[in-house]
Design a protein around this nucleic acid. Structure first.
Lengths: 238, 238
DNA sequence: GTCTATAGTCGGATAGAC
DNA sequence: GTCTATCCGACTATAGAC
């Protein structure tokens, strides 16, 4: 697990500052990625303070200064993780978000908006079972949003706010009310929170449901209830 | 802020172990309480590791060993906080829980159960605006349940599980299904999670709602949506 | 009961060789 | 690029005086 010989001669570029991800990346880029993977997992399981750089460096098979070399500091590494998460969430939800925005731009019916909302929620729920890393990432985000740390602003503005905005607008359309109606926003927060119970609150929900994991079957049941909740929107209030 | 003279002579009781809360408590019991208050606030704001005993001792106006004297260790202090929280939550929700159980024991109608569920949720929501300490306590519980620590078992078995059980049973009664129906349980988790969005997820919800605080007015709006969600139960599903 | 002083540990970061 | 060795600050906990 440790490479000894370097096949590349001096390239003239000695990254005293930091190896910015230029186009022609060379060797250690793989090392960088390995560190990032390990850190993502670690920071997902435990908080920023609880995770030690020593642990990460050992798990990644590198020495401590190597972390400093690539990410400058523990905080830099943490931010790097947050960036990677944002990247991936974006890729996973972009198509659903795009078509939702399309629906919103047209003068669409309440039912079209309802269908779109279901699609958005389904896309988000897909992150539940997407990869085995998904859980760690969801925990990372949830923890950072509740106990703001070095990556709060990034995660809030890139993930949370857009999600709440989109959901609020869709709900407002369904209810036929203004998107500034506080009730639409409250319902949006509650809907998202209902989903997150099984995502960031996974472990405790698993225990309550006596599930050992969240697979396709469990996911279907969760989505069933979420759909019911969406169906109830606009059919009840005074 | 520091008392110098001791007015009490030797009492013959030298608490080498710990000053268990016996009936005839003497002086330092007030010190103990002050430490507990400070610790409750601190552990509410930050995690177990993030909070330092130094900070607590300074804020409480005592020296470090005093913490050890009263609580044995940092962990003991943490457990003490959890115990205090359980006490208070119990007092606050016992009457609602009792009448809910009463409704469940009788062969009550779905509508009676629905009304009871609203009452239970309202009682829980009352913790939102109860005291200014309420926020810290909710955060304490939420964090411990998500990132299990020394007080997990206590909080889970004393707060979370009973709450989920009760909610599940009421929902099952409303829907006229078995209380073992996974869907009833899922709905219970979602309902509780919807409320917690404004409790443990307070700061981020405040920001999304552009509220500066959660007062009576805001609480009413949250409860309005929760009631709507409860009203939708049993009127939708296949 | 409460203090001062200190022991013992651990974590993040740096210096500098290779 | 990656390592070994080391510094230094911060933390919990204990010893022992008053």
């Amino acid at each position: 697990m440790k490479q000894s010989s370097k096949t590349l001669p001096a390239t003239g570029k000695t990254p005293k500052t930091r190896p910015v991800s230029t186009t022609g990346y060379r060797k250690g880029e793989e090392t960088r990625q390995r560190i990032l993977d390990v850190a993502l997992k670690a920071f997902g399981e435990d908080s920023f303070i609880a995770v030690t750089t020593r642990h990460i460096s050992e798990a990644a098979g590198v020495s401590l200064p190597t972390l400093q070399y690539y990410f400058g500091s523990k905080e830099g590494l943490y931010r790097g993780c947050a960036g990677a998460i944002v990247e991936r969430y974006r890729r996973h939800t972009s198509s659903a978000a795009a078509s939702a925005r399309e629906v919103l731009n047209k003068e669409s019916s309440a039912e079209a908006a309802r269908a779109q909302l279901k699609a958005v929620i389904k896309a988000l729920a897909g992150l539940l079972v997407g990869s085995n890393q998904a859980e760690a990432w969801a925990q990372f985000v949830a923890r950072e949003l509740r106990d703001p740390g070095p990556a709060f602003e990034l995660l809030y503005s890139s993930l949370w706010r857009p999600g709440v905005e989109l959901t609020t607008k869709l709900i407002a359309r369904i209810r036929g009310c203004s998107e500034n109606d506080p009730n639409a926003r409250i319902q949006a927060l509650m809907l998202i929170s209902s989903l997150l119970a099984f995502q960031s609150g996974r472990s405790i929900s698993l225990r309550a449901m006596q599930w050992s994991t969240i697979g396709q079957e469990e996911l279907a049941m969760v989505l069933f209830s979420l759909d019911a909740q969406i169906d109830a929107i606009g059919r009840d209030h005074s």
